[in-house]
């Protein structure tokens, strides 16, 4: 009896709370964001989840949309990952790609931000501009540059340099012949170079917010650049490192634009140059038989993995501590 009453109470409380929220100024303020999230995030997720339970193929919506196959797509996906020799490399590649590129992005960004901090103003800004170039270059143009750089024939920049130096005598097909290191190296290199600038910008602006007196005080005490970096800059950049790591990890998990072009142009091996996100894209849009149910299932799992990894990263790196200590309005 009592339990039911209290249950009703909470229910009506919740409704009245939602009602209050809809009538509040905050709701109006949040409305644009709420609409965007619903249209571009929630609806696609619901559609994807729905699709993952249907045997939808080749966009033949009329035929398959009312057919339900339960978790069959999910079982098929797991079976392919564990047994299909053309799918397994994709997942190994995804793990290697994310781990190595993430390390390059975060450490590279941090290193650049700190290095430019100790440089003169002019050197610092030109260094930063240089590292921003990959970010500013259109994806296709940027991919094209590295396509020619790593090209497997004698016209490839890397090959022709090595050949003219006499280190190699005939061109090496970097992305197709040295499996898996060749394609891995290329996709990690290309994406790593783009991603470094993000960390660099976040860390640079964070460093510029550290009071200069802290550094001067350490300098007066005789601290070297390394000691200032280790004892002052990095501890004070902790939260920014958490943020950049989490953010970059999630964006690496879902990125496929550069990789798509490199695979399509045949620069890198199709199996050891494809990541999970690109695999889903290919299955849904470019494969001969577009297995949309399977693609949707793989996509749903990718979203779940992303969410879990994000939460895990924030947990490990102590995000809740950052949230608990408000430093603004006390």
């Amino acid at each position: 009896m009592t339990r039911e009453v209290s249950g009703d109470m909470t229910k009506s409380n919740l409704f009245s709370k939602i009602k209050d929220f809809i009538h509040s100024d905050a709701f109006i303020f949040l409305l644009p964001a709420i609409i965007l999230i619903i249209v571009f995030y929630l609806i696609p997720i619901v559609v994807s989840v729905y699709m993952s339970f249907t045997p939808l193929k080749n966009w033949n919506i009329a035929r398959y949309i009312h057919e339900f196959v339960g978790f069959e797509n999910y079982w098929r996906f797991f079976y392919m990952v564990t047994h299909d020799p053309t799918v397994r490399p994709i997942f190994i590649t995804t793990v290697v790609f994310i781990l190595v590129t993430l390390a390059i992005n975060v450490l590279g960004g941090l290193g650049l931000a700190i290095a430019t901090f100790f440089m003169g103003e002019r050197e610092a800004s030109s260094t930063q501009l240089l590292w921003l170039l990959p970010r500013m270059t259109p994806i296709a143009v940027y991919s094209m540059i590295w396509y020619y750089f790593f090209h497997g024939s004698a016209i490839g920049t890397l090959n022709s340099i090595l050949m003219s130096l006499g280190i190699i005598h005939k061109p090496i097909d970097w992305g197709q012949s040295i499996i898996p290191w060749g394609p891995w190296m290329i996709i990690i290199f290309v994406n790593g170079l783009v991603g470094v600038s993000y960390g660099m910008i976040v860390f640079t602006s964070a460093i510029s917010n550290i009071p200069k007196e802290l550094v001067i005080a350490a300098r007066v005490d005789g601290a070297s650049n390394w000691s200032i970096t280790k004892n002052i800059l990095i501890p004070l950049l902790k939260w920014h490192i958490v943020y950049v790591t989490t953010w970059q990890m999630l964006s690496l998990l879902t990125t496929y634009d550069h990789i798509f072009l490199l695979v399509e142009w045949g620069l890198v091996n199709r199996y050891y140059g494809t990541t999970w996100a690109l695999y889903i894209y290919n299955m849904a849009f470019t494969a001969a038989e577009k297995d949309l149910g399977l693609a949707a299932a793989a996509g749903v799992i990718l979203v779940i993995v992303g969410a879990l990894l994000g939460l895990l990263a924030l947990k490990i790196l102590g995000f809740e501590k950052m949230v608990k200590e408000p430093r603004g309005d006390i």
Partner: peptide, 21 residues
């Protein structure tokens, strides 16, 4: 001479204490 070789103690207006220590 660089600051470290002058053996000086410096106190700033904002005190410049290391917040994480």
């Amino acid at each position: 001479l660089p600051p470290k070789d002058r053996n000086i103690g410096l106190v700033f207006q904002n005190w410049a204490l290391y917040p994480h220590m």
